[in-house]
Design a protein around this nucleic acid. Structure first.
Lengths: 333, 333
DNA sequence: TTGTACGCGTTATCAG
DNA sequence: CTGATAACGCGTACAA
């Protein structure tokens, strides 16, 4: 079975390759008659232009990369959903890369993408403080990047985030309103932009009420987090309120309470940033700050696509804030 | 800033392009000395081979496509995790396409991929009965495909699944053991391979016990499912056991019980296929048949990669079964 | 309106 | 051991 490419079509129609090419791209300098003959044969033979030849020639790939820490996480899943939606609409392809929170992998991926495989990048960082030299190289190579959720301060570009600070404040205020006297904040990683903003919202609220703050440093290891939280609850001055910076820490908190026979919300009230679809069904249902993950993905993709294509808009430093919603449920009483 | 490609390297080193190319691919016919000079400069200028030129020349792309119905679903998220893991290891890139359970989108995606953008495809189908002509075309074009989870019977290839029939049987048996007298099966779509096998396991078990079966047809619309289930529970002979074929139906069941003030497990016992990380934390904790999603993704990817590269193995009809686990929790008493 | 010729960046073949 | 040349498939400047 011969491959069907422009040459093949040209030969069968006794035309030149360039005429066929132009006919298929509906060029104004080709007669209608010829166009229709070409299109008919192309259809008949099911001609599909070779994307790699096209990319090589045009120096663009109609492909973007999405680099995220993990995918088994409702926030990122939903964000990808939004991204893919916009991409499919615009005729772009989406490559997925997972860093597993590992800086080295992140760096290797970025380095690899310097070769022009993608026209642009959407990224949520593994950590913020990672050496960002590789990101500067992207600028040099003119590969646009848009950050979402976990952003990188040092790079001037569009960043799509939620109102982390305000939401952190609101969540803390809610715990105080519910009568909490001692509120702990569970930090997932002080290197992350989101964690920093959320903790600052928390601290501002705590201090506005002349209360004592307590920031507990957790990590990405579930078992370790569980033991950290159990230790926290075992201390003499056990907190009566917990603010989890990310949903996995809320789940560990639930697990810790289960093991220690602490009752939520009677003994401890819990609020968490989370996009879990099961938040309302947990035991007890979890009060969440729910981020508009799908919307964030869409916004980020839309911004990126604005910087691609025929008349690209340069990506200037800009923060697009899509606000979160505090959803009250039983875990805070 | 000049682009750094083979030509550039060649010029700076007073070598020919072909020598540079061979040096970088560590060809045996290049002197060590030359190789090192070339590599040094390549490193210094941070040379990155153009992937599209390479793909065009070699007629392969080091890229695979993953086509799935949705991504905000713990099974598929975990599967992608496994797929990406293997891909990264083998130096492959992963394109993601979502069908949103839409046959037309699925067809359009496949059609598009006939152009050689990817070396192979991993797929979980939107529905089983969709016209499969486009899938046959893949065979003709020699693009290997491996199905996972929701497979397509008509295509001879590797299929990675879990033991849906046996698990369906086991789950039903468990409900019977727990004293259920009337067990309803919630079907997500009778067109899906997985649904068919699961319901058959259910039916076999039900009939073995001379019980009456009740298959309730739901769909992809959460609101409609909720009302379907509420109707089910409102009927005169309300079932005392529910077997949900997919996790979203279990969640709708929980919601329906909440609204109708039915108690799980006292009034209704519930078991479901599910990969929800929050299953143990639901109210009450949910008895699940948990699929090895990550493992399934890995197996599928591994099989596909076996059919790619230097000495590819043809994909013969074969079913790889990775068994699920029934995890007992409070929703079944 | 159509054709010719070239180049995108790489690798493979052939020659030396 | 190295170099010249062609080819992968497509798009476009230039010519006619």
């Amino acid at each position: 079975m011969d491959k069907v490419n422009l040459k093949r079509l040209a030969k069968e129609l006794n035309l030149s390759v360039s005429t066929v090419s132009r006919a298929l791209s509906d060029s104004y300098e080709i007669s209608l008659e010829t166009k229709e003959k070409v299109r008919a044969l192309a259809q008949k033979l099911n001609y599909q232009p070779n994307p790699y030849a096209k990319s090589l020639r045009k120096q663009e790939s109609s492909t973007i990369a999405v680099i995220i820490p993990e995918i088994a996480n409702s926030f990122f899943s939903l964000a990808i959903n939004g991204i893919e939606e916009v991409a499919q609409e615009k005729g772009y392809h989406v490559l997925i890369y997972l860093t597993h929170e590992n800086q080295l992998r992140e760096e290797a991926i970025i380095r690899h993408l310097l070769n022009g495989r993608v026209d642009g990048i959407l990224m949520s960082m593994a950590t913020q403080t990672s050496a960002v030299n590789h990101l500067f190289e992207l600028k040099e190579k003119n590969i646009p990047i848009v950050f979402f959720d976990r952003i990188c301060d040092q790079i001037n570009t569009v960043k799509v985030v939620t109102d982390d600070f305000e939401s952190g404040f609101k969540a803390t205020q809610h715990l105080i309103n519910q009568g909490c006297k001692k509120i702990a904040y569970l930090s997932v990683s002080p290197n992350l932009s989101i964690d920093q903003k959320r903790v600052n919202g928390y601290l501002k609220c705590i201090h506005a009420h002349q209360m004592e703050d307590q920031v507990v440093y957790c990590g990405n290891n579930d078992e370790q987090n569980l033991s950290t939280i159990k230790t926290l609850f075992g201390s003499t001055e056990r907190p009566d309120g917990v603010f989890a910076s990310v949903e996995k820490l809320a789940l560990s908190t639930y697990a810790a309470c289960e093991e220690l026979s602490l009752l939520i919300p009677a003994d401890v009230k819990v609020v968490s940033f989370s996009n879990l679809p099961t938040a309302p069904l947990l035991n007890p249902s979890l009060t969440t700050i729910t981020q508009p993950a799908y919307q964030i993905g869409k916004e980020a993709a839309t911004s990126l696509f604005g910087a691609l294509g025929r008349n690209p808009i340069e990506l200037k430093e800009r923060e697009i804030v899509v606000p979160s919603t505090l959803i009250l449920r039983k875990s805070t009483g």
